[in-house]
Write a protein that binds this DNA or RNA. Structure first.
Lengths: 251, 251
DNA sequence: CAGTATAGTGCATAAAAACGCAAATATCAA
DNA sequence: TTGATATTTGCGTTTTTATGCACTATACTG
């Protein structure tokens, strides 16, 4: 087995299992623990994973990552959420994506807001449990633990059956030429299904996401009707989106 | 289990429960109290949590509702959950119902437990997000807010497609003659779908539920293979269930 | 203030990592 | 092909790390 091939395998296992143990790897890959350790160290040096005693973990620790992401850039996210809520009308059917910005929107939703919300995000489901006026539809599927949301074929199918008035969409990167992108393949498919059939598609993105690219592109810029970002975005940065016919709000 | 992994788990539990107790952690994480203490001290040194006598608290005050924590600090439910976990085997497909007793079971599940869990309960989804070895399938449907679970035709359909090894079932009442009952019509349909096709059906019920009746009957006593209750149940109370061929555990 | 639960300490042990070196394998040029 | 060179891999040894145990000290509780 080639070195690169082996390292690819290690990464695949790491993604699947959430951790790798050096001794187990040497067993599965039929090689010595030395080689495995060398591989792990090499990959850790290039930032592909986090080396720990006994094996390795994903570079973004799963449990802690959600928590810390949840807390960071609070003011910016609050502004985005507020601007976004301004776009919503009573009694609409609203799809809410996973991601901390969309979650923030759900949390800021007035308690007397009346609407139907469709979501695959566990924390959004949790939050909206206490909104009496909101009819909530949970999307089923495999739980993607890092993002706390449902993904997979089942989720995509259920979402395709929904034609929402508004879709609140989170993303990892947005670029005028490349389009809308995310970090994981699974998310790509889910977000495509969310966009499909929605009357308005509102992307929520902190200003640092503007102009950045992530591996998986799930749609063109023209899929969007609105882009909501924070005050950190310059007019120059926003211009390409406006000229593409997107309504841009920056709070 | 890797050290860093364990520490991430501790953080996840801390975030979820609002506190951690050293002795409980050593139990759930299957390690010595020494190791737990070392972990807690290490994390406290890096400012990830606040060390206190007996366990640790979050660095920042948490927004967790006291209500939800209170129903967890119930010794009877802990005993039921522990007995229930004893029935589970690695790599089974397990359906977990909504309800606080079933939720308790999910929380007490060892971190290294490997299985596939199917659930319609939002807090169970939340809890199992931090169990790396558990593949979780969320059931979609309308959110029933009071119980924080998915119900309705969609949920019933998805559940009917599952043939589980074990089904952990909560209920509002169980009576030797009347059968298994719940308070809401929606729950009745969902629970019927859960039972359908399950190899083992384990009812979890606090002893005060025994012999009581609720409006909607979703199954006969013979649908059950196991009944797990707490030590508050008398032998006389349990006898009818035993004679019906049900394996009765009372912790 | 006594009794119990929790913490800290030193030590033994086992697992894992690092290191140096030699063998195996691949790469490349003539 | 052949041989020179670089890379990769495996093995023995040493060093480090992680963990559990026994024991003592300290903190909580009634």
């Amino acid at each position: 087995m080639l070195k690169e091939e082996r390292q690819q395998n290690i990464l695949a296992i790491l993604r699947r299992e959430g951790k790798v143990v050096a001794s187990e790897l040497s067993d599965v890959l039929k090689t010595s623990e030395d080689t495995v350790r060398r591989d792990l160290n090499e990959m850790a040096a290039t930032g592909l994973l986090q080396r720990v005693h006994g094996g390795a973990l994903p570079q973004a620790p799963t449990a802690i990552s959600y928590q810390s992401r949840d807390l960071e850039s609070n003011a910016a996210k609050a502004a985005i959420a507020a601007a976004c809520i301004g776009l919503l009308r009573q009694n609409q059917v609203i799809v809410i994506d996973s991601g901390t910005t969309a979650l923030r929107l759900a949390r800021e939703l007035p308690m007397d807001f009346r609407a139907t919300v469709v979501t695959n995000s566990v924390p959004v489901l949790d939050t909206l449990s206490s909104h009496p006026g909101v009819e909530v539809i949970g999307i089923g599927g495999r739980l993607f633990k890092e993002a706390r949301c449902m993904v997979g074929a089942q989720a995509v199918n259920e979402l395709r059956a929904v034609h929402a008035d508004v879709c609140i969409l989170g993303l990892n990167g947005i670029h005028p030429d490349v389009g809308l992108c995310v970090l994981e393949h699974e998310s790509m498919l889910v977000k495509r299904a969310m966009i499909h059939g929605a009357r308005q598609v509102v992307a929520v993105a902190a200003s640092d996401k503007l102009g950045t690219v992530a591996p998986f592109v799930f749609g063109q810029l023209t899929s969007l009707t609105h882009l909501v970002t924070d005050a950190g975005a310059s007019e120059q940065e926003l211009m390409p989106y406006r000229t593409a016919g997107i309504i841009v709000l920056s709070g």
